Every structure is written in C-alpha cells, then in structure tokens.
Amino acid sequence: MTKIAITDDDFQKFREYFYRKTGINFETTKRYFVDKRLVERVEATGSDSFRSYFSMLRFQVSGAELQQLTNLMTVNETYFLREEYQFKCLVDSVLPEIVQSKSDKSPIRIWCIPSSSGEEAYTVAMYLMERWPGLVRWDVEIISSDIDTGILHKARVGRYSTRSVQHVPAPWLTKYFTRMGDDYQICEDLRQAVEFTRVNLAEPGDTRPYRNFDVIFCRNLLIYFDDVSRKAAAETFYDALKPGGYICLGHSESMSRISSLYKIRKFPEAIIYQKPLEG
C-alpha cells in the first residue's frame, strides 16, 4: 500500500476547514499531531489519498467522519479536583451571592464545557455534596458538554484511573467510588447528578438552547482558539448566562484580554468573571 503523505498544502486546507467547523486553530507546531491523525483516518476509511479523504469529509451528509476525526483531534487531559481553588470559590463565595439575589426557587444551573471525561462536572457535584450546606434547600442542575462523542461516553460510564483520582480525599474516594481492578467506578448517584451533552461551541445551532446558567466552567479550552474564536466563545457564554452569572476560566486564561462584556470579580479564593446585571 502506498504510504499516505500530508503535504504543506494539505495541512493548510485541513487547518482552515477544521477551524471553520470547530473554532480550533492548529499551529504549525502541532503538525506532527495533526498529520498522524489525518493519516490514521485516511487509512481507516479506505481512501487512497488525502485529497479523496478530504472531499469525503467535506461533503458527507451525515457528518459522521467529521465527528470521528474531531474525537481524535481534541485533547482530553484532566483529573479530579484540578485547580481546586475555583471549586472552593464556587461554594464559599459564588453560590452564597447567587442564592442571596435569587427571587424564586428555580434550580441553580451550572454548565461545564468542555466536559472531557467528566472529572470536572463530577468534582462540582462532590464539592456541593460535601462542602455546600445550601444543597439541602436548593436544587442544582449540572450539565457537562463536549464536542467529542467518545469522551462523553467515557464520562457517562464514569470509570477512572488511579492517576485521575489521585487528588480525591480518601473519605470521598471511599464514599463515591468503587474499586474495579486498577480503576475506580464513580457511584450511580453522581452519574445521575450530571447530564452529558454533545455541543460544538463554534456551531450556533448547538449552543442556542443553552441559556439561563448561573455558573459556567470553561477551563483550558480557549487556549486552543485564536482571538476571533475566543471572542465568539465569550459572546456565546454571555448569552448563555443569566444576568449576574459567573464564568470560570483556566489559570492561564483571562477574559479581560478577550472581551469587555464581563466584569472582573476578585474573590478571596479566585478571580472569576461576571455578566453584569441588567439595568
């Protein structure tokens, strides 16, 4: 079989196409990573060249191959209690502000995007159960979304490696997980507490139904976007938040460098960003 090669022109065409579809911009430093996965899918689909594969990718009505490729191209590196100070901020500072300003008993809504394999959303659920007394009085909805259907399946299953749970306190590990060989299976109650959904942040049709959130966690995603995509994402999150709602970014990300829509909130535990109250 002829070895498939990805030329500079091929890489450029693919990079522009994938950027339009997902908002993710691959720098030339990622060339080896991208080429390897493209060749893998060219061969897996039985295409005889990048050109024939790329034509199929663009014109396939179902979009199944684009989803397969997206699953390969997205990075899903995470673990439980990552950047824990933000979860402390959620229960100690943010949620008390939210409930104080609530005029009804509607659920508190939290959106985690990207979901990755579910550690962040499940950490939110555990933190609320262990550290937030308000949970006895308030209903909370946790929705966790990702563009990668494979990683969403893993999140729903909720089975994790020793490395993934290494920062989970021993009492929590005993309470919420069951040892399964070398892995840890998260309990059914927590799996029922989180709704996992597929969302492409760059696709308005996907994000339009996501509204009226009190808190959004979007950590370490925008580093893969360029300035235009980051600004568009900031506007999408602005529309998804209730007036006065909050968004948490990764430690190396700054909303003030992306958009002027939000105001900076400096809490004792963390700096996060807030959608201003109307009026």
Rank of each mutant, 00 (worst) to 15 (best):
Y85G: 01
Y122V: 02
L95V: 13
T70R: 12
I98C: 01
L128R: 05
M73E: 06
G63L: 09
V124S: 06
K102Y: 06
W138M: 04
I110L: 10
L135Y: 09
E119D: 13
A125C: 11
L90M: 14
P114Y: 03
E130A: 10
V140I: 15
Q100M: 03
E130H: 09
S101Y: 04
L72Q: 13
I108D: 04
L95D: 05
T70H: 11
I110N: 04
T70A: 15
E130P: 03
D92Q: 14
A121W: 06
G63C: 10
C112P: 01
E83Q: 08
V91D: 10
E120V: 07
E83I: 04
S116I: 00
Y127V: 15
W132D: 11
L69H: 05
M73C: 12
R137G: 06
I113T: 14
G118M: 04
M73Q: 09
K88W: 12
E119W: 01
M129L: 14
L90Q: 06
V124N: 03
W132N: 11
S117N: 12
V75E: 02
L128T: 10
S103H: 02
Y79F: 15
W138I: 00
V99P: 01
K105M: 07
V75K: 03
L128M: 13
V61Q: 12
E119T: 03
L81S: 06
F80I: 01
L81Q: 05
R137A: 11
R137S: 14
A64T: 10
P133N: 12
R131Q: 15
V75R: 02
A121S: 14
T123N: 06
Q86K: 10
V94I: 15
E97D: 11
D92R: 13
L95C: 09
V99I: 12
S103M: 02
M129I: 05
